[in-house]
């Protein structure tokens, strides 16, 4: 074996050993790219899935946001229209309020003038009421005087009738006396004798005064029942109450009305209300004479 062969063998051996060592070292320390690839791939897949999920969620959120935006735009549009309408209504209301305020001012002025007028009219009514009360009192007094005059006229009429009766009786007596005289003259002379006639007219030589009228009799009673236009008093025929009697109803010092009797019972009487100043009440005084 030549030296060159030996040298080559040695060199080849060392170089092979070196190369083998290098290869072993490299392979032993080399990365496992398959595992790395699989890891990266799975991570990529996970990320892709996450991206898809997020994209879907984002799409959904975007649709929701767009829907919300549309709803809000619609609400904004509606509220804008409503605001416009409310502005118009506000302007109208302000205008109407102004008109009403003007009318209220006018009415206030009218009310003030009416108040003044009413105060004046109250004074006038009060004075007229006083005059009317005085006139009613005068009317009642005149009515009373009229009743007295009527009674007097009735009395004078009866006296005249009595006088007329007396006159007719005197004429008849005169005729009887003439007949007697004729008879005597006929007996003495030759004159015809006339038959005397009996006196037909009754003797009313006694003239009596007229009976007291209803208003002249003083009767006092109390109002026992009051209806719309009727009243009942607490005395009747047994106390001397007659139909068409007039009772003056008073309450304290105030004149209330008159009651003209239309129906008389034994212990009570009823009549219609006249000259009513106030509505009579149960317990008011009723009298045929005013104080």
């Amino acid at each position: 074996m030549s030296a060159l062969t030996k040298v080559l063998i040695v060199l080849l051996s060392f170089s092979s050993l070196f190369l083998c060592g290098a290869i072993v070292t490299y392979v032993g320390s080399a990365n496992n790219y398959k595992d790395m690839y699989d890891g990266q791939r799975s991570q990529l897949q996970t990320l892709n899935d996450k991206v898809a999920t997020l994209t879907a969620a984002a799409q959904e959120q975007r649709m929701m946001v767009e829907q919300k935006i549309q709803e809000y735009e619609k609400r904004i549009q509606d509220m804008t229209a409503e605001k416009t309408q409310l502005s118009v209504d506000l302007n109208n209301a302000l205008r109407e309020s102004l008109g009403h305020q003007n009318r209220a001012d006018k009415w206030q002025g009218l009310l003030d003038s009416y108040g003044q007028t009413m105060a004046n009219q109250e004074l006038t009514i009060k004075s007229i009421q006083e005059k009317l009360d005085a006139a009613r009192g005068q009317l009642i007094e005149n009515d009373k005087q009229l009743n007295q005059q009527t009674a007097r006229v009735y009395e004078l009429t009866i006296q005249m009738e009595a006088l007329e009766t007396a006159r007719r009786r005197a004429v008849e007596e005169k005729k009887v006396l003439e007949d007697k005289l004729n008879k005597i003259a006929a007996a003495a002379g030759a004159e015809p004798v006339r038959v005397s006639q009996a006196v037909v007219t009754p003797d009313r030589s006694r003239v009596s005064a007229a009976a007291e009228t209803a208003s002249d009799v003083e009767l006092n009673a109390l109002i026992s029942e009051v209806f719309e236009n009727l009243a009942t008093i607490s005395i009747g025929a047994s106390d001397g109450v007659q139909k068409d009697m007039r009772f003056h109803v008073t309450r304290g010092d105030e004149y209330v009305c008159d009651v003209v009797i239309t129906h008389v019972d034994t212990d009570k009487a009823a009549g219609v209300l006249e000259l009513r100043q106030q509505q009579p009440r149960v317990g008011d005084n009723a009298s045929t004479r005013l104080m």
């Binding site: 074996m1 063998i9 092979s16 050993l17 392979v27 032993g28 496992n32």
Partner: peptide
């Protein structure tokens, strides 16, 4: 001295075989 060189070559061959086997094992395992 021929035996010495034969041993060296054999050792080299063993190293090569070990290296090939090691590489094959690593490839298969990875």
């Amino acid at each position: 001295t021929s035996g010495l060189y034969t041993a060296i070559l054999a050792l080299t061959l063993l190293a090569i075989v070990f290296t090939a086997g090691f590489v094959a094992y690593q490839c298969h395992s990875d």
